[in-house]
Design a protein around this nucleic acid. Sequence first.
DNA 1: TTGGAATGTCAACAACACTGACGTAAGCTG
DNA 2: CAGCTTACGTCAGTGTTGTTGACATTCCAA
Lengths: 170, 170
Amino acid sequence: MAEGRGAQGYGGESLLFLTDEQLRQGIEAMFFAYRGFTADPDRILAEMAYGRAHHRAVHFISRAPGTTVNNLLAILGVTKQSLNRVLRTLIQDGLVESRVGKADKRERHLFLTEEGVALERILSDAQRERMRAAFREAGPEAVSGFRQVLEAMMDTDLRRKYKKLKEAGS
Amino acid sequence: MAEGRGAQGYGGESLLFLTDEQLRQGIEAMFFAYRGFTADPDRILAEMAYGRAHHRAVHFISRAPGTTVNNLLAILGVTKQSLNRVLRTLIQDGLVESRVGKADKRERHLFLTEEGVALERILSDAQRERMRAAFREAGPEAVSGFRQVLEAMMDTDLRRKYKKLKEAGS
DNA sequence: TTGGAATGTCAACAACACTGACGTAAGCTG
DNA sequence: CAGCTTACGTCAGTGTTGTTGACATTCCAA
């Protein structure tokens, strides 16, 4: 991409990238890219009886094993009833294990079973492959910018949660 | 972000940005950022009887006035039954006008009415404001990288459509 | 110990996607 | 012109994922 690195003469204070047209292109880029982002896992999930919500749950349980339902709720941003339906099927199907909390028996701590780990791997392999290809094509500096913009686009509380996960996974 | 611009010593051929952990962070960044991306319009739409699907339709009709149903279908990537449900309510409510094609009378060309333009403006103002803030915070180079990565993440046919829109809106 | 808060479950409903089938009007082709 | 295809609309049925409302259990603090 030749126009990548400020070759057009903005000296650092130019606001060309903030025109309505540029912003609209950014919006459409998000829309189309997100479709690509979810396409591969969606294809896989469609063959099973699962959907995108199952993927999200499995992903974050994998990322933070032993997390409570409440914590997962905050990260996913759905109602507990909605999450519960998903968790119920995952537990019934033996992909997720729910253990009653020791300190607080109201809490349920969530873990992936072996089978759950296997599904997570299949899904995230597919999604990572897409991300890897995009990263490789765009290059390290673009990746850095990509993440900066995305981070700035998050709601502040989600941004906090995102950074927390980032540190945890260092 | 101190680590923003390749300060960590990768010389251009380092693949640190392709580690599984980096990819996973990219995936989570997409997830959280998309939530922020849709949050403001969703709030507005919730107060009316409309949803995200209506927003998408209105956006792309605004972007390409006179577009046909078939074209919109290809861009949105949904079935005609699904689009039709949305379009029907928008037409009934007087936000969208559907005109029979002159050259080909089978086609319906879609336009926003004044009222439709007004709604589109409210929604896109909210969304653009979020995008503007993110762009400003991240800076022009980051924005360039952001768009490069997103473009690389799209399916090839969507990428074509995205570029077409981009050129049209020059 | 009792009342409120936190945690999680069950039931019913709405939005929005899907498939499949069908109908109509218009264009195209042999 | 006859027959096939295209573009669009619609009806019916289904699945996923979100919502609210009601309720049980557990913890904690007044």
